[in-house]
């Protein structure tokens, strides 16, 4: 831009007035922050020192990380989490729709279900399923199936029913909140276009409700992964049970508990990342510009650090 360099009227010193002089001021000193940081660091040092002086066999953790028993426990934990969530979501959607219906019977049954399963601890529910064998001797679904109760009600089934049915109550409330969050004008617009109730629900309401439903459902999955450690009550062989068994047999009890914690952390972290992308997908249309994913941000940074922020 050397177009108006030869302008005689303007002295060269006044040429760049575009950038006014920035304010130079002494910033406020936050002494409180310094003190707080020192206190926290001090406490951390104490904690690390305590563990360093304890007789933790740190080497045992990587050694048993991929131990066959531990991995079997981990597989079972993931499996029961996924299956319980599937039961929870399917049954939860059904309950939410029942709750919305105009039929007083289905409505009150759904209400009662949520009231019961949300109002009692999962641990108690698991024990109940486990001990039902004390009052039922046989399972007899007349024409289809008949068996000894104890053969039928395996630890796996106890865990699945206990976790899944409990989860359904929470999912029902999440779905109900999601459906209610969609503006009534949307239903009206769809109806005015001649869409039936079912189609309106499927094409218009549910996709918008998903934006409200997905984040808490992601939390529920993460919660379920951790809650599944309670299935120890029904003697299901999950990650925690495996860690305890291995720990007891090899004399590394605390180490195996730390190992279990590490596996739980890894699993929940992976789930959180998945949830981030899922939420992003359902936010489409809700905000003008989707925020870049961490990958996109990284790529933008690598492409040219000097035009940071200008990538969009």
């Amino acid at each position: 831009m050397s177009v108006d360099v030869d302008k005689p009227a303007e002295p060269p010193a006044a040429a760049p007035p575009a950038q006014p002089e920035p304010i130079k001021a002494i910033p406020v000193r936050h002494y409180g922050r310094w003190v707080a940081a020192l206190v926290v660091i001090g406490l951390l040092v104490l904690l690390v020192r305590a563990f360093a002086s304890g007789k933790v066999n740190w080497g045992a953790i990587p050694e048993y990380m991929f131990n066959a028993d531990i991995l079997k426990g981990l597989r079972n934990t993931l499996w029961i989490t996924v299956l319980s969530m599937v039961i929870g979501i399917v049954l939860g959607v059904v309950l939410a729709v029942m709750r919305q219906s105009k039929n007083p019977v289905t409505k009150s049954v759904a209400w009662f279900y949520v009231w019961f399963f949300r109002g009692t601890p999962v641990y108690v529910q698991l024990f109940l399923w486990f001990n039902l064998g004390l009052v039922f001797q046989y399972i007899d679904i007349m024409p289809i199936y008949k068996d000894e109760w104890s053969d039928f009600m395996t630890p796996f089934l106890c865990a699945l029913l206990g976790l899944g049915l409990n989860e359904a109550a929470y999912m029902a409330e999440i779905c109900r909140a999601g459906l209610n969050a969609v503006d009534e004008g949307q239903t009206e617009a769809a109806h005015a276009l001649g869409m039936s109730h079912g189609r309106t629900l499927r094409r218009i309401v549910v996709p918008q409700a998903m934006r409200v439903i997905v984040p808490p459902t992601g939390n529920e999955v993460i919660n379920m992964l951790k809650t599944s450690s309670l299935v120890i009550a029904v003697q299901y062989y999950d990650l925690l049970q495996a860690a305890q068994n291995v720990g007891r047999d090899s004399g590394v009890v605390v180490e195996m508990l730390i190992l279990a914690a590490a596996w739980y952390l890894i699993a929940t972290t992976v789930l959180s990342i998945g949830q981030y992308y899922l939420e992003r997908y359902y936010a489409r249309g809700a905000s003008r510009q989707l925020p870049p994913t961490p990958f996109q941000r990284l790529k933008a940074k690598l492409a040219g650090p000097n035009r940071a922020g200008g990538a969009a």
Binding site: Q186, E188, A190, I204, Q208, R284, G285, A286
Partner: peptide, 8 residues
Amino acid sequence: RFNLFPHM
């Protein structure tokens, strides 16, 4: 209030 479908 228009009532366009925001996800489309």
